[in-house]
């Protein structure tokens, strides 16, 4: 039995789940779900979002109270999906889209592949590592070993993430292999400035989106999710630092 109530709350939860999984801020997810539920005719809507779960409650047309929750297990960074879900929710709130249409669109966004192919992401992390190493260290030649190190650390991150399914440990191993690559390149005479090369090879692993989102959540007053994301960012940075420290103490 799928009444309008169930369809509406399913739609709101699907939109919230997609936004939270692909890296939106907490207050944006809460606001989007609340607006969609009110536009669908719900009263007394309350949404509560943390980094790992979504709660939504409300009353539809003098019916009983409904309250549902969803658990978020995986978190990725794909900001173009967040933009598309935002667009769909605006269309739905403005009344230009029915519940079924919006659900179909959200399903399409969920299945849609990444915006850029994987090889372009590898190349981008190599280029980003090299470019940031130049901005930090001012040696034009050391961009090449830094970009090789960045490529190796991203490849290692994707590989270990695929086989180990343990986020912090695979970040540790990726930082370790990036640091080892940088040290090997410097020892074999291909590169001079070791600080710059190590920084460049670690730059693709830095948790940029969790860090920014943590500060934005804290400023918006979502203390729990702000602290949770901050803890995620801090643990990631800690595992990166530990990986490099292992590499340096073993091979320098």
């Amino acid at each position: 039995m799928t009444t309008k109530k169930d369809k509406l709350i399913d739609l709101c939860l699907l939109a919230g789940k997609l936004m939270l999984m692909y890296g939106a801020e907490t207050y944006r997810v809460e606001d989007t779900m609340k607006r969609m539920a009110i536009a669908g005719g719900m009263d007394n809507v309350n949404s509560f979002v943390t980094t790992t779960g979504i709660f939504l409650s409300g009353v539809l047309e003098d019916d009983d109270d409904i309250m549902q929750m969803i658990r978020i297990v995986d978190r990725f960074q794909d900001l173009s999906k967040v933009t598309e879900v935002n667009h769909i929710s605006r269309e739905f709130v403005a009344g230009r889209m029915s519940i079924t249409d919006a659900r179909q669109e959200l399903k399409r966004v969920e299945k849609q592949p990444m915006n850029y192919p994987l090889w372009l992401i590898y190349i981008a992390s190599a280029i980003g590592g090299g470019a940031f190493s130049y901005l930090i260290g001012d040696s034009l030649f050391d961009m090449i070993p830094a970009s090789i190190g960045g490529l190796v650390s991203t490849l290692a991150l994707v590989l270990f993430q695929h086989y180990l399914q343990a986020k912090f440990f695979s970040e540790y191993l990726a930082a370790f292999f990036g640091g080892v690559t940088a040290l090997i390149l410097v020892h074999s005479g291909f590169g001079t400035n070791i600080d710059q090369i190590i920084i460049g090879s670690l730059i693709p692993l830095v948790p940029g989106v969790p860090l920014t989102n943590s500060v934005r959540d804290l400023m918006a007053g979502d203390l729990i999710s702000g602290l949770a994301r901050g803890a995620e960012a801090a643990l990631t940075s800690l595992s990166i630092a530990a990986g490099v420290a292992t590499a340096v103490s073993l091979f320098l």
């Binding site: 372009l120 992401i121 280029i127 980003g128 470019a131 940029g208």
Partner: peptide, 11 residues
């Protein structure tokens, strides 16, 4: 560098 990072985050 900023555009490369934007590609990593799928902008």
């Amino acid at each position: 560098a900023t555009i490369a990072f934007a590609i990593i985050f799928n902008i």
